[in-house]
Structure formats: structure tokens, C-alpha cells
Design a protein around this nucleic acid. Sequence first.
DNA 1: AAGCAATTTGACTATATTTGTCAAACGGAT
DNA 2: ATCCGTTTGACAAATATAGTCAAATTGCTT
Lengths: 105, 105
Amino acid sequence: MDINKTTGEILREKREEKGLLLRHVSAKLDIDTAILSKIERSERKASKEQILKLAEILDLNKDDLLIQYLSEKILYEIKDEELGSKALKAAERKIRYIKKNNSKD
Amino acid sequence: MDINKTTGEILREKREEKGLLLRHVSAKLDIDTAILSKIERSERKASKEQILKLAEILDLNKDDLLIQYLSEKILYEIKDEELGSKALKAAERKIRYIKKNNSKD
DNA sequence: AAGCAATTTGACTATATTTGTCAAACGGAT
DNA sequence: ATCCGTTTGACAAATATAGTCAAATTGCTT
């Protein structure tokens, strides 16, 4: 799973690889084909639940797909921000700090 | 500005240091004191515009406060996620990749 | 080129989330 | 007991998100 593809691209490629139609997959997700089409073209974001279901349907590694999906969500938060990279680094420092101090649980 | 304080804590400390009341600051922000109170206690998120105004009002470094604020937003996206740290790292890789390929502009 | 299946688009609706107001309650100082 | 700053929670308005549906478009295949 290439980190520099979008989640949508990954989903579309795997779906086509398996010879499935939007119709087939969207039925299993219980949404309209239109939405799945938009998800694959990154016009809409999937929900976490949909991502997990898609991993099952398309035989993609759940953790990998979820990481891909979450990282895209993170990027979305900072996409127009000059200071985005610095914010990311700060977030890492914070998460490390939080983890350290939660080890007391 | 301590990275391991919340944005709210930073704002409250600096406001109190300057001897300002919620009333004073919220008037400049043009919101109710109730909201500012909630922002300071991390019960609500400020908007980016409010953060920038707050930096001015409280004489805080704009970039530092913005980084603080954005990193908190990022953290919020992954706070309940097992795979949060991995997603953060993936986001960094992506942003590096994007920057590399945009240098053609 | 016509016909047909798959996908895309866009208008629309419903629902959820966010952002704010307001008034009442709380807490500490005098 | 009153005053003043802050907090709380119910409510309303505005905005964002998720979805449906039908029509338009794309791309085969004949």
C-alpha cells in the first residue's frame, strides 16, 4: 500500500483489481454508488466504519488502511497552513508526552 | 510557551498575568464570556481567527500559539486511535513528499 | 453510430455538529 | 448577605456532513 496514494486511489485500484463494480461494493456498505464514487475520487471522506468495512470487502490490511485514512485526515487539518509541519512535530512531542505520563495507569 | 500545556491553559495564564477579565477579552473577540471561559477550560475549541486575535490581545507570539493550536487539533483527530502515532508519522512522510513535488511551482 | 452498462454530477434533503446567546448558579472576598 | 468574576446548561441559529435520486456522461461492444 503506497503511502503517497490517496485513500481513494487505493480503494479504486483494489476494487478494480478484484473486478468489482461500485454497485457491488456500495451495496455491501449500504450507501449509494454516488457516494462511493466520490470517496474514490477524494471528493468525499469516508467514515471510519466505512473504511473498516472496505478493508474487509477488498481484502486490504485493516491497520494499513486505517493509518492511511487517519494520516489523510490529519493532513486535511493543516493543508493550507504555513506552519503545518511544525504543528505535526509539536503533535508528536505531545503524544509522546501523554504516553509517557499515562504509563502510570 | 510550554508545549505540554493546553491552548486553554496558555490563554488563561497569560490573561491572568495581564490582569484582564474574561469580560475584557471576550469583548475584543466579540463573543460571550461564556465561550471564552469554555475555550480556556478546553471545553470548546477556538477558531483560527480567534486564536490570532487572542495572540494580539494577550501579546503572545502568533506562530507559537498557532502551532500550539494546530497541534491540538491534530491530536484531537487521533486521540482515541490505537494507531495514532503511526498515522502521525505517515502524515509527516506525506507532507514531505508533497513539499518535494511542489518545489516545481 | 447506436445501445448499454458503469460512473459521475449536481440538485436536493435530512441530520449532526458547531458556534453562539442568555440567564441562572456558583465561589470567594469583603 | 452582597458583589463580582466565572461557570454551567438549556436553547437557537448557522454551518457542515451524509445521504438519495435522477439525469448526464463515459466507454465499450457490436
